[in-house]
Amino acid sequence: MNFNFGFLLFFLIFLGSNGQSQTKIGATGLWSQYIYKKPLTQRWAIAGDFQYRTYEIGADFQQFIARAAVSYRPTYTAIDVHLGYGFFTGQPFGAAEDNTTEHRLHQDLWFESKLNSRFELKHRIRIEERFIKGQNFRTRYRYTLFLNVPLHRSTIAKHTLYAALWNELFINGETDTGTGTVAYFDRNWAFAGLGYQWNASFKFQAGYMRELTPSTNKGQLVISVFHQL
Protein backbone atom coordinates (compact mmCIF):
# COMPACT_ATOMS: atom_id res chain seq x y z
CA MET A 1 0.00 0.00 0.00
CA ASN A 2 1.55 3.33 -0.99
CA PHE A 3 1.42 6.62 0.88
CA ASN A 4 -1.30 8.28 -1.22
CA PHE A 5 -3.62 5.29 -1.20
CA GLY A 6 -3.21 4.87 2.56
CA PHE A 7 -4.24 8.44 3.30
CA LEU A 8 -7.12 8.30 0.83
CA LEU A 9 -8.41 5.23 2.66
CA PHE A 10 -7.88 6.97 6.02
CA PHE A 11 -10.11 9.92 5.11
CA LEU A 12 -12.73 7.87 3.23
CA ILE A 13 -13.18 5.71 6.33
CA PHE A 14 -13.52 8.76 8.57
CA LEU A 15 -15.93 10.64 6.33
CA GLY A 16 -18.04 7.59 5.59
CA SER A 17 -18.54 6.62 9.22
CA ASN A 18 -19.05 10.22 10.35
CA GLY A 19 -21.98 10.61 7.96
CA GLN A 20 -24.18 8.15 9.81
CA SER A 21 -26.92 9.11 12.27
CA GLN A 22 -25.46 8.78 15.75
CA THR A 23 -26.20 9.86 19.30
CA LYS A 24 -23.37 12.06 20.54
CA ILE A 25 -22.27 11.16 24.07
CA GLY A 26 -20.87 14.14 25.95
CA ALA A 27 -18.86 12.19 28.54
CA THR A 28 -15.17 11.72 27.68
CA GLY A 29 -13.68 8.35 28.51
CA LEU A 30 -10.15 7.36 29.52
CA TRP A 31 -8.31 4.40 28.03
CA SER A 32 -5.03 3.38 29.69
CA GLN A 33 -2.85 0.93 27.74
CA TYR A 34 0.36 -0.99 28.39
CA ILE A 35 1.66 -2.58 25.19
CA TYR A 36 4.67 -4.89 25.28
CA LYS A 37 6.88 -6.95 23.01
CA LYS A 38 9.61 -9.42 23.98
CA PRO A 39 11.90 -10.71 21.20
CA LEU A 40 12.84 -14.36 21.67
CA THR A 41 14.97 -14.88 18.58
CA GLN A 42 15.58 -12.93 15.38
CA ARG A 43 12.18 -14.06 14.04
CA TRP A 44 10.10 -15.02 17.07
CA ALA A 45 8.64 -12.74 19.76
CA ILE A 46 5.87 -12.49 22.35
CA ALA A 47 3.59 -9.44 22.15
CA GLY A 48 0.46 -8.25 23.92
CA ASP A 49 -1.26 -5.58 25.95
CA PHE A 50 -3.23 -4.78 29.10
CA GLN A 51 -5.93 -2.10 28.96
CA TYR A 52 -8.27 -0.46 31.45
CA ARG A 53 -11.09 1.67 30.05
CA THR A 54 -13.68 3.95 31.63
CA TYR A 55 -16.66 5.71 30.01
CA GLU A 56 -15.83 8.88 31.95
CA ILE A 57 -12.43 10.11 33.08
CA GLY A 58 -11.82 8.32 36.35
CA ALA A 59 -15.32 6.84 36.62
CA ASP A 60 -17.84 4.34 35.16
CA PHE A 61 -15.81 1.20 34.38
CA GLN A 62 -16.07 0.15 30.74
CA GLN A 63 -13.67 -2.69 30.03
CA PHE A 64 -10.56 -4.59 31.10
CA ILE A 65 -8.47 -6.35 28.44
CA ALA A 66 -5.58 -8.82 28.77
CA ARG A 67 -4.12 -10.02 25.48
CA ALA A 68 -1.04 -12.00 24.38
CA ALA A 69 0.26 -13.30 21.07
CA VAL A 70 3.14 -15.13 19.46
CA SER A 71 4.81 -13.14 16.68
CA TYR A 72 6.79 -14.58 13.75
CA ARG A 73 8.57 -12.88 10.84
CA PRO A 74 8.91 -15.26 7.84
CA THR A 75 12.29 -15.46 6.12
CA TYR A 76 12.96 -12.83 3.42
CA THR A 77 9.93 -10.72 4.40
CA ALA A 78 9.24 -7.53 6.38
CA ILE A 79 5.87 -8.88 7.58
CA ASP A 80 5.12 -9.83 11.18
CA VAL A 81 2.45 -12.50 11.73
CA HIS A 82 0.71 -12.65 15.12
CA LEU A 83 -1.44 -15.42 16.58
CA GLY A 84 -3.02 -14.60 19.92
CA TYR A 85 -5.73 -14.77 22.57
CA GLY A 86 -7.49 -12.07 24.59
CA PHE A 87 -9.74 -11.98 27.65
CA PHE A 88 -12.29 -9.15 27.92
CA THR A 89 -14.67 -8.17 30.69
CA GLY A 90 -16.82 -5.05 30.73
CA GLN A 91 -20.07 -3.28 31.52
CA PRO A 92 -22.60 -1.25 29.51
CA PHE A 93 -22.51 2.55 29.70
CA GLY A 94 -23.86 3.80 33.03
CA ALA A 95 -24.41 0.31 34.45
CA ALA A 96 -23.06 -0.76 37.85
CA GLU A 97 -23.53 -4.48 37.18
CA ASP A 98 -24.43 -6.74 34.23
CA ASN A 99 -20.86 -7.70 33.32
CA THR A 100 -20.06 -9.11 29.88
CA THR A 101 -17.27 -11.62 29.28
CA GLU A 102 -15.54 -12.42 26.01
CA HIS A 103 -12.78 -14.79 24.91
CA ARG A 104 -11.22 -13.77 21.63
CA LEU A 105 -8.68 -15.24 19.23
CA HIS A 106 -6.89 -12.98 16.75
CA GLN A 107 -4.52 -13.21 13.79
CA ASP A 108 -2.54 -10.15 12.65
CA LEU A 109 -0.45 -9.07 9.69
CA TRP A 110 1.85 -6.07 10.39
CA PHE A 111 3.79 -4.34 7.61
CA GLU A 112 5.26 -0.94 6.74
CA SER A 113 5.08 1.38 3.74
CA LYS A 114 8.45 2.80 2.73
CA LEU A 115 8.23 6.58 2.39
CA ASN A 116 11.30 8.36 3.72
CA SER A 117 13.17 8.49 7.00
CA ARG A 118 10.83 11.12 8.46
CA PHE A 119 7.54 9.20 8.20
CA GLU A 120 6.72 5.94 9.97
CA LEU A 121 3.69 4.47 8.18
CA LYS A 122 2.51 1.07 9.42
CA HIS A 123 -0.47 -1.14 8.68
CA ARG A 124 -2.21 -3.84 10.69
CA ILE A 125 -4.81 -6.27 9.38
CA ARG A 126 -6.54 -8.23 12.14
CA ILE A 127 -9.04 -11.11 12.04
CA GLU A 128 -10.89 -11.93 15.26
CA GLU A 129 -12.91 -14.96 16.40
CA ARG A 130 -15.22 -13.79 19.18
CA PHE A 131 -16.74 -16.00 21.90
CA ILE A 132 -19.07 -13.68 23.86
CA LYS A 133 -21.01 -15.02 26.84
CA GLY A 134 -24.69 -15.42 25.94
CA GLN A 135 -24.20 -14.63 22.24
CA ASN A 136 -23.49 -16.47 19.00
CA PHE A 137 -19.94 -17.01 17.84
CA ARG A 138 -18.93 -14.42 15.26
CA THR A 139 -15.93 -12.95 13.48
CA ARG A 140 -14.69 -9.41 12.94
CA TYR A 141 -12.21 -7.81 10.55
CA ARG A 142 -10.07 -4.77 11.40
CA TYR A 143 -7.69 -2.54 9.47
CA THR A 144 -5.47 0.07 11.15
CA LEU A 145 -3.26 2.71 9.56
CA PHE A 146 -0.59 4.25 11.83
CA LEU A 147 1.48 7.36 11.07
CA ASN A 148 4.24 8.73 13.33
CA VAL A 149 6.13 11.93 12.40
CA PRO A 150 9.12 13.27 14.40
CA LEU A 151 8.76 16.95 15.31
CA HIS A 152 12.33 18.08 16.00
CA ARG A 153 14.48 15.39 14.38
CA SER A 154 14.66 13.70 11.01
CA THR A 155 13.93 10.26 12.52
CA ILE A 156 12.32 8.88 15.66
CA ALA A 157 15.17 7.93 17.98
CA LYS A 158 16.05 8.36 21.67
CA HIS A 159 14.47 11.49 23.26
CA THR A 160 12.30 12.28 20.22
CA LEU A 161 8.91 13.99 20.38
CA TYR A 162 6.60 12.93 17.55
CA ALA A 163 3.06 13.36 16.24
CA ALA A 164 0.99 10.17 16.34
CA LEU A 165 -2.03 9.54 14.11
CA TRP A 166 -3.99 6.38 13.49
CA ASN A 167 -7.35 5.23 12.19
CA GLU A 168 -8.98 1.82 12.65
CA LEU A 169 -11.99 0.38 10.85
CA PHE A 170 -14.01 -2.59 12.23
CA ILE A 171 -16.27 -4.78 10.04
CA ASN A 172 -18.45 -7.58 11.44
CA GLY A 173 -18.34 -10.93 9.67
CA GLU A 174 -21.86 -11.85 10.85
CA THR A 175 -24.83 -9.76 11.93
CA ASP A 176 -26.84 -12.25 14.05
CA THR A 177 -25.63 -12.11 17.68
CA GLY A 178 -28.18 -14.58 19.04
CA THR A 179 -29.84 -11.82 21.05
CA GLY A 180 -30.39 -9.41 18.15
CA THR A 181 -28.65 -8.09 15.06
CA VAL A 182 -25.79 -5.69 14.39
CA ALA A 183 -24.65 -3.87 11.25
CA TYR A 184 -21.70 -5.05 9.18
CA PHE A 185 -20.02 -1.72 9.97
CA ASP A 186 -19.09 -2.10 13.62
CA ARG A 187 -17.10 1.05 14.47
CA ASN A 188 -14.31 3.44 13.51
CA TRP A 189 -11.59 4.88 15.73
CA ALA A 190 -9.70 8.06 14.72
CA PHE A 191 -6.79 9.16 16.97
CA ALA A 192 -4.47 12.16 17.08
CA GLY A 193 -1.86 12.82 19.75
CA LEU A 194 1.77 13.19 20.74
CA GLY A 195 4.37 10.56 21.48
CA TYR A 196 7.80 10.55 23.10
CA GLN A 197 10.49 7.97 22.39
CA TRP A 198 12.34 7.82 25.71
CA ASN A 199 14.90 5.17 24.75
CA ALA A 200 15.10 1.85 22.91
CA SER A 201 12.83 0.20 25.49
CA PHE A 202 10.10 2.78 26.19
CA LYS A 203 7.92 5.20 24.31
CA PHE A 204 4.80 7.01 25.49
CA GLN A 205 1.74 8.37 23.67
CA ALA A 206 -1.22 10.50 24.75
CA GLY A 207 -4.04 11.92 22.67
CA TYR A 208 -7.70 12.04 21.80
CA MET A 209 -9.65 9.35 19.97
CA ARG A 210 -13.13 9.66 18.44
CA GLU A 211 -15.18 6.47 18.32
CA LEU A 212 -18.04 6.22 15.82
CA THR A 213 -20.51 3.32 15.78
CA PRO A 214 -23.83 2.98 13.93
CA SER A 215 -25.57 4.41 17.00
CA THR A 216 -23.05 6.49 19.00
CA ASN A 217 -20.38 9.16 18.64
CA LYS A 218 -18.04 9.36 21.65
CA GLY A 219 -14.58 10.63 22.54
CA GLN A 220 -11.91 9.29 24.86
CA LEU A 221 -8.45 10.21 26.01
CA VAL A 222 -5.94 7.45 25.26
CA ILE A 223 -2.70 7.09 27.25
CA SER A 224 -0.30 4.39 26.09
CA VAL A 225 3.02 2.96 27.28
CA PHE A 226 5.00 0.89 24.76
CA HIS A 227 7.61 -1.42 26.27
CA GLN A 228 10.25 -3.38 24.34
CA LEU A 229 11.27 -5.99 26.92
Score class of each variant (00 low, 15 high):
A163T: 02
Y184D: 07
A164L: 02
G180M: 13
G193H: 03
V182E: 07
A192I: 11
W166Y: 08
N172I: 04
F185N: 10
D176Q: 09
G193E: 02
Q205S: 13
A206E: 11
W198D: 12
N199P: 09
A192P: 00
G195I: 06
N188G: 10
F191E: 01
F170A: 01
F191Q: 00
T179H: 12
T181D: 07
G173W: 01
D186A: 08
Q205V: 14
W189H: 11
D176K: 04
A183R: 12
Q205I: 12
G207Q: 06
F202T: 10
G207I: 10
K203G: 02
S201H: 15
L194Y: 10
N188C: 06
T181F: 09
T181H: 14
Q197H: 12
V182G: 03
T179P: 04
Q197C: 10
G193T: 05
T175A: 03
F185H: 14
T181I: 07
E174K: 04
T179G: 10
L165R: 00
W166P: 01
R187Y: 12
A163Q: 02
Y196V: 11
Y184A: 04
G195W: 09
A164F: 02
N167M: 02
W189K: 13
Y196A: 13
L165W: 01
A163G: 08
D176M: 08
K203A: 06
L194D: 10
L161P: 09
W189D: 12
G180V: 12
T175L: 09
T181S: 11
Y196H: 13
A190M: 13
N167Y: 00
W166I: 02
A190L: 14
A206D: 12
K203N: 14
W198R: 15
L169V: 11
W189R: 11
I171Q: 02
L194R: 03
D186I: 06
T181W: 01
Q205M: 12
F170S: 08
G195T: 04
R187L: 14
Y184W: 02
G180E: 11
N167K: 00
W166H: 07
A163Y: 08
A200G: 05
L194A: 14
R187G: 14
T175N: 13
